[in-house]
Each structure stands twice: as structure tokens, then as C-alpha cells.
Design a protein around this nucleic acid. Structure first.
Lengths: 221, 221
DNA sequence: CTGTATCCATGGCGATACTG
DNA sequence: CAGTATCGCCATGGATACAG
């Protein structure tokens, strides 16, 4: 760990936090992940060796603790990174609206969607929402969101249940909706999203799918 | 600039901000520096080539603008990094109290001190406060803070004026006082700081020297 | 499931010198 | 004053395979 040679607290903080991937791991922990492979899902482009290395660095820095057989947990110090991560997210969503093609990833997106599904808006009986991303290679194109009571599952293989509604759109469009860059209303109006299902169910889809916590951040004028 | 391959706003923000030195440059700009060589004083361990590179990256990212003949200025986007830098500083001062020997630097320290001197607490007539850092190599050991009305100068060469008070201490102790890790009262009591001058002037020294904005941050219990 | 071990290419970055 | 130019090392971290 290279030092900045400065006593300034910002510099000391960045010595711990500015290494590549580090704050994304903290973000995952703040979102509730605790196990190694759970963390991997949040940073899939990271090699396990590097993830392991970063976790040890965070442990040495006192930001996380390994708990016996229970994975990793943020310490008090780590929990206090939440305002920083939140502020970074708010800044990012305001000032970096351009999302490159390489930033789109259906696995990450559906992983995010899954953990924020507002189950209270869904029918009580098991309900399945299907997605077809027109611009994604066939093997990752189709996804199913199955809500059964309080349980939510996100599948990239057909679970075989009756589908209530199918959402047909591009991965980019659905990502933009998730991020709050685009509204359901606008996307439906323009035809960027097409819904297939009964009219009464179609109308509920926007309420079934949550959105990023950062979607509500005001955009610059 | 390597990408994380994630649409998450935190990841997009970190693509811009997690490169080594970047947020320290932003910190300097937030503190009021605008010229290249002014910025260098705040990040003296950085090579000019690298500083130049980072400035161009920040410009491309829309965080700063070059203004004709006036150096660099934060854009609206850049100004909104203030809460992030502040939060990082607060976290750093709370959770990374250990300052290595290599983190101590009289130039950085006196540069910081100079820009926060509360001139309103000083006598109206030109007044000089001298420092002698016992544990610093002779050439960087002696410093003079000269306050004349609203003007503040920090010199590493004797300006030749009468000295009101001399502060004799270690660089570490004075850094700790500046950061708020140690109070003047405790340092004087323990003998870690010795003042030389008339009793009435000696008593004012703590009010003449400001302290880091972060010194007021509550420390963890 | 939870990581380690190993290998290798890349390029980041530190040091130094130099220029308009 | 405000940067470029050049060089070279070594660490970063990506990929892959493997182990407790």
C-alpha cells in the first residue's frame, strides 16, 4: 500500500480507499452481502484472487471483520463509509449519465433488481415477470422474476411458470429505467419498451419493478 | 482509464475519482488553489508530469476547466465533490489516527497553517511567530509566521523581524495539534510544546494558530 | 463453497531532465 | 511560470487453474 506522504486526513483515507475496486466491495457489503461468492456477484469482473487481496487489505485497515463461518462484516469504521458511498453514487448519477456499452450487464442488473423488488406491490399468488433483452446474446437474453409471497427469485433459465407479463426492451433501456435516467412512461410511449400480457397486469409492471435508490437523485438542470 | 464494466453510479464515479492523487488535487482546488505550481505545493510528492496528466483527465471528465491565463477552476460538477472530500476527511480523521513518520512534512503543514491563520486574533501591528521543530533536519527546522494586518506569510528563512513568541516542539506534536488529535493545553502541560516569549503573548499563541477544519470532528469513543 | 497459487503483460508512476 | 519528454522498474491486477 503506497503512501501519499501526507498527514491530511483525506490523504490517509484515500490510502485505504482509492485502490481499484475497494469502494465497490464496500458498496456490496453495505447492500447486505456477506459471503465471498455473494460479493463476487457484485463485482463479477474482479478475479477471486484480487477480491481476496482487497478483503484482507480492508481487514487490516479495520474496515471489515471476518466472522467465523459467516463471511465478512463491516466494522463501525466500515459502516461509517455509507455517507461516502452514497455521496459518490449521487454524484455519479448526476454527472456521469453516459453509460458505455461495456457497462451494461444483465447479470448485475437483475441482481440489483432482485434485491429491491417491492413485493408488497405484487399479487399474493406466485407471479412471474419475464424479460427479453433484444440486444443481448441469446444465452443471457431471457430472464424471469418470480415473486411468491415475500420470496423473490431471479432466473436466467425458464422456471416453467406461467408468465404474467413479458417486458421486451433493450438492455440499455431497462438499465436507464432502473437508474432513473428514463421513466417507464416515456419508454412505453416511445416504444422502447413493449409489454405483453393482459392490460390490467401490464399497467402494474412499473410498480412491480423497483428502481435504484439513486434514481430519485435530482439531475442537474 | 480502465472501466469497471458496471452501470452503477458508484462505479462510474470511481472510474473518474479513484486514480491515485485525483481527489487530493480536487481537495487543493476546493481549498482555493488555481495555478499549476500552487497545486504542486499541495501535492509535492507528485511529479509534474503526473499532475499534468491528472488535470487533463479531470478536464475530460468535466470536473475542472482551464481558464485562460487563470489556471484551473472546478466546474459545477467539481464543486459538488466537496461533500465527498469533506466526508472522506471526517472519516479519515476519525478512523486513521496513526500518522507515520513519512506522513510528516513541515512544508505541507505550514502551507496548511498559513491559509487558515485567524488574523483577527493577532495584534494589529506586524507580529512574528517562530517555530523550531526539534526532530527535523536543520534546513527545514525553522519557520516564521508573519502576520501584518490581513497579510500572512509563512517563511522557511528568517525574515529578520523581532519574534514575539517561539514555539519549540516536535513536528509530530505540532501536526497532532493541527489535526486536532492533541490539544494545546495537553501539549503544554506535558512539556511536548515549549513557548518562549512574554507571558501575555505566550497565552495567545493557541488563538493565533488556527487548526484544521477537521480538528472539530468528534473522535470515536 | 471459499478461497489460493501462479504466471505474465501492461502500464502506472516515480525520478530526472529539459523546454516554450 | 507552466508544463513536456524520456526512461525504466516494479507492482497491479487480469486470467487461469487448482486446493481445503
Amino acid at each position: 500500500m503506497p503512501s501519499y506522504g501526507q498527514f491530511c486526513p483525506v490523504a490517509k483515507a484515500m490510502e485505504v480507499l482509492d485502490e481499484r475496486w475497494t469502494l465497490l466491495i464496500v458498496r456490496e457489503l453495505l447492500l447486505g452481502s456477506t459471503r465471498f461468492n455473494e460479493l463476487r456477484r457484485g463485482v463479477p469482473k474482479m478475479s477471486p484472487a484480487l477480491l481476496s487481496k482487497r478483503l484482507r487489505a480492508l481487514e487490516r485497515a479495520g474496515v471489515i471483520e471476518r466472522t467465523e463461518g459467516k463471511g465478512y462484516a463491516l466494522t463501525e469504521s466500515g459502516l461509517e463509509l455509507r455517507p461516502i458511498v452514497d455521496a459518490l453514487g449521487a454524484w455519479g448519477v448526476r454527472w456521469i449519465p453516459q453509460i458505455g456499452q461495456a457497462d451494461l450487464d444483465p447479470h448485475l442488473l437483475m441482481w440489483d433488481v432482485r434485491r429491491t423488488v417491492p413485493v408488497e406491490n405484487w399479487p399474493r399468488a406466485r407471479t412471474t415477470l419475464a424479460f427479453a433483452f433484444s440486444d443481448v446474446a441469446p444465452k443471457d437474453r431471457y430472464w424471469w422474476l418470480v415473486v411468491n409471497g415475500d420470496e423473490v427469485d431471479s432466473c436466467d433459465a425458464d422456471p416453467g411458470y406461467d408468465v404474467a407479463v413479458t417486458v421486451a426492451t433493450s438492455l440499455r433501456t431497462f438499465t436507464e429505467i432502473w437508474r432513473g435516467d428514463l421513466s417507464w412512461a416515456a419508454a412505453l410511449r416511445s416504444g422502447a419498451v413493449k409489454l405483453d400480457g393482459s392490460a390490467s397486469l401490464r399497467r402494474q409492471v412499473p410498480d412491480w419493478v423497483g428502481s435504484s435508490l439513486l434514481s430519485q437523485v435530482a439531475r442537474p438542470a
